[in-house]
Design a protein around this nucleic acid. Structure first.
Lengths: 239, 239
DNA sequence: GACTTCACTCGCACACTGTACGACAAGTCT
DNA sequence: AGACTTGTCGTACAGTGTGCGAGTGAAGTC
């Protein structure tokens, strides 16, 4: 049957005590482990060991593993910078683009720093205070730029969708220990060449890309698409 | 250490025999199970049982579970329609927009039909023939519309990113048995209201949305953002 | 001081996972 | 007939999330 919806954010957290385990400490250690070894490597026993605690001790502070992931997820959103627009002064359009662009790059950077984030998107409720705070501020930016009513949400969703969609597949290249080595890349090219055997057009392109600077082209692709999205949004604004 | 990259598509499949298990049959049954019970519910034992076979028999046809998921993933891409552009005749711009728009909606529909797809994006190599075929045809559409060189790939990536990013979080509402019931929605609203306590602006919006038709607004949001993206791409084309 | 009550930790156990291995049957070739 | 190949599957192992109940120490009460 259908699983009941639930979330950490709808329960009161355990009160913080100076001694022993704390929720914050657990989440921080989980982040370390996730960054170092990836999503699949995070197990309650391993986490417990890293905390010098029993695996099941964690369950006093967190209802289950999914809640722990919700907390970790929200913590990363806390790393994303997006300034609260000061007052109600409408910034000029240029300022809006600058702010949103900077936000998008910052979000991208945060996800790439924590490549396991991608796998979590859409799998857990994103109702943490950091996540909602960012979303709230993003809405304010859009409103200040001149969007109104439903279009505020539509605009935010469009930008966020683009960023997520672009970054998540890219995290594939960044997972575990700072990304693939030279020989990993060679192996991947070999795989891809074999797979694109029937698509000569794709294959030629692939070979061209392989000689290029990967990180560089990824940034370029992100920037280029983002420009399209922002242009499209701006067109809607002037209509 | 870093996991070795590998993929089903780089190994020769077992030859097809009329009797007994076949790779196609395994994948088809896996799709059934995934659609019916979700990604977490797919276990080799369950799949084996459904096939009236031992769990480990599957391993003769498929190296491991990840390969099985690669096959399932690619199978869904096979459901997406995107006509091969006939000949080298440049379609008018309007036709390009129509084709790409239709493709995006079709892709969206396919992912929603198989909500477990979202969780797989970026977690496995997407080198299947169906996936590559779609990508190849999408590139052709872009080229026919007037894009050239690297911009073909940049454009494709932009559109695909947008679609993925928009749809994946939405699949949350469609998972397992055709989506949440009325009481699930009420529960979610309650959760969300509690979470947005500190964001009055968001909360008001949320309440407004809750009375509306969800599927409808989701389609609207998709369409609206897609329009932005296509506008932005078109601007790049005319520059 | 003795006794109770709480907050917290943790060992054990259970059901379940992916999959390596080797035994086995059936079919094909020599 | 025997040998070899192809495919199936039972067993086993190391690992998972987590429920339960016993244990700990500190705080509060008589």
């Amino acid at each position: 049957m259908n699983k009941q919806f639930s979330s950490v954010w709808t329960r009161e957290p355990r009160p913080v005590k100076p001694a022993g385990l704390s929720r914050d400490q657990i989440v921080a250690t989980a982040l370390d482990l996730l960054d170092a070894e990836g999503l699949d490597a995070l197990s309650m026993r391993k986490l417990g060991a890293r905390l010098n605690a029993g695996a099941t001790s964690i369950y006093w502070h967190v209802a289950n593993k999914e809640e722990l992931l919700e907390l970790a997820y929200d913590a990363v959103w806390g790393e994303v910078k997006l300034p609260e627009p000061e007052g109600e002064t409408l910034p000029p359009l240029l300022a809006w683009r600058t702010v949103v662009r900077a936000f998008c790059f910052d979000l991208r950077a945060a996800i790439i720093r924590h490549p396991w984030m991608g796998a979590l998107l859409g799998r857990l409720p994103a109702l943490g205070p950091n996540t909602l705070g960012i979303y709230d501020r993003l809405r304010k930016s859009f409103r200040a730029a001149g969007f109104a009513g439903l279009e505020i949400d539509l605009g935010c969703a469009t930008v966020l969708s683009y960023v997520m969609g672009q970054v998540i597949p890219q995290t594939f290249y960044f997972t575990e220990h700072g990304g693939p080595t030279e020989s990993d890349m060679a192996r991947m090219l070999e795989m891809a060449e074999q797979a694109t055997r029937d698509f000569p057009d794709l294959m030629a392109d692939l070979r061209a890309l392989h000689t290029a600077d990967h990180r560089g082209t990824q940034v370029l692709a992100f920037e280029w698409g983002l420009m399209c999205v922002l242009d499209g949004l701006e067109a809607r604004l002037n209509a």
